[in-house]
Amino acid sequence: MQSYPVGDTPLVPVGSHCILELYDCPTNLLNNPEFIEQALVEAAYRAKSTLLKEISHHFEPFGVTALALLAESHISIHTWPEYGYIAVDIFTCGQHTEPQKACKYLVQTFQASKHVLLTLPRGKLSPQVQKKLEESLFLATSER
């Protein structure tokens, strides 16, 4: 059974999906909706993407979720101030975007002492690339 699309479509990725984990961030930054919204807008700019709309929600007693709708897809930021932790998701399509630059900016802006970045190609990939991707993801999840 194949887990990749079959057909005459060219074997090309359509975009890049970055999963960014930020650790040991200052609590005051993670519970500040205005600061997070500004970081979100700047991250969209750094990714060379087109910001269409943003929305955020401040949870009680703490935590913020902020989303940016991009012409090229989206950026989401979810904070857990009580753990000093932020989960970021950046998906951009198009050859002009640079989501890794947005990730680097967010690591610096939120003063993370540790971070993990996983970058995945999105779209139709060659069977060889798809197999390597599936194997690496399986290994990463199996080692827990």
Rank of each mutant, 00 (worst) to 15 (best):
L67G: 09
L133Q: 00
P81H: 02
E37L: 15
T119A: 15
Q100C: 02
T92R: 09
E60P: 07
F59M: 12
Q108H: 15
T92I: 08
T27R: 07
F35N: 12
L30D: 09
G84L: 01
I55M: 11
F62Q: 15
L29K: 06
F91A: 13
M1I: 09
P121Q: 06
A43V: 08
M1R: 08
K101G: 04
E21S: 06
L40H: 07
V41Q: 12
A140G: 01
L29G: 08
T141L: 05
G15N: 00
G94M: 10
L67Q: 11
L52Y: 07
Q128E: 15
V129G: 01
Q100D: 04
E21N: 06
L52W: 14
K114D: 13
S49M: 13
H17L: 01
T141R: 02
V88N: 01
T27D: 06
P26T: 03
G84A: 01
F35I: 10
E42D: 08
I55C: 09
L22E: 02
L30K: 08
T9D: 15
P99G: 08
P13H: 00
F138S: 01
F59R: 14
W80P: 01
L118K: 04
L11F: 13
P127R: 05
Y23A: 04
C18S: 03
D24N: 07
L125P: 11
P5C: 11
H17E: 02
P26V: 06
D8Y: 12
W80T: 01
F62H: 15
K104M: 03
Q2L: 10
T141G: 00
A140T: 05
